[in-house]
Design a protein around this nucleic acid. Sequence first.
DNA 1: ATCATCCGGTGCTAAATTGCAAGCGGTTTT
DNA 2: AAAACCGCTTGCAATTTAGCACCGGATGAT
Lengths: 170, 170
Amino acid sequence: MDVAHRSGCPINLSLEVFGDRWSLIILRDMMFGGRRHFRELLTQSEEGISSNILADRLKMLLDQGMITKADDPSHKQKAIYSPTEKAIALVPVFAQLGAWGRRYTAATEELSIRAQLLEEGGPVLWNRFMSELAHVHLGRPLRRKGPTVAERLQAAYDDLRARKTKRKTT
Amino acid sequence: MDVAHRSGCPINLSLEVFGDRWSLIILRDMMFGGRRHFRELLTQSEEGISSNILADRLKMLLDQGMITKADDPSHKQKAIYSPTEKAIALVPVFAQLGAWGRRYTAATEELSIRAQLLEEGGPVLWNRFMSELAHVHLGRPLRRKGPTVAERLQAAYDDLRARKTKRKTT
DNA sequence: ATCATCCGGTGCTAAATTGCAAGCGGTTTT
DNA sequence: AAAACCGCTTGCAATTTAGCACCGGATGAT
């Protein structure tokens, strides 16, 4: 049962859960990209994870209580992965990670737009997004109407990409 | 010169810099624990890093521009490592990481007290702390007087430890 | 001056992790 | 009936990690 921990420091323990090169990428795709099937996570990831690593990480995230796995009623072979509240609570971490990456790395404009909106929206937007995720993945009630944060992020991304494509082809 | 990146996503690029099991631990000890020599980082870390990994990571953090290395005038063999602004800008990331770890992992009370104060202090405290670090490590001017954030964090930790020890011995 | 200790590492070996390609039994689509 | 798709698994090579002994020079206490 007990896995030996390196220390009881909350930062260390966080890193022991998702401090590797893939776990957060997978959770990012699940929460921000809406990817919920193995194949989606495998083939539609920007970074190109390999199948055995993906399988291993999904297993680990399951064990850690970060995600759940369910059968897809529409397809006997498909599994649906969902983030738990524990994973949804990482939204502020993602926001800060994105903000830092936007400033200090050579991130591309298109892939930074979501991070930018999230940064500008601040904790209010983060909370709204977490509520939405809890609604979609955990069935929590959602009082707010109108366009969701997920939709707004996606729209901004699509917008920017459309404009970029046009710029190149004209 | 160019290192092949997996993608231009700011979150991914951040993880490519410090998304492993040790880099953030080292930076945490440097910024929150005031450890600036190889030996200090090696022997006073809660987690017990081994010397080759530490040497490797210091080299990498140097290459990435996260830290600088200087001679210690008081000792010809000592090197002084300092975080750059790029690393100091990780304070909000550490704060969120600590906040998450405090809630969702079995962090010990003593090692969580700093994270708690940082969480409660919010962005105002984070900025103050970053200013202090920029003062200590980058020589930036510091206008604020009185006890520093670093001192307050350390005091809270010492306090809690003293009370815990007393509780056990009485 | 001598000797133990401290300094930032290096080198070795074993173990664990990663990345890649291929494949598997079954399901669904065409 | 064939082709594509489903979530993985397996085998293998390459890289990374962990632990540990050790190094030559510098320092501090006696």
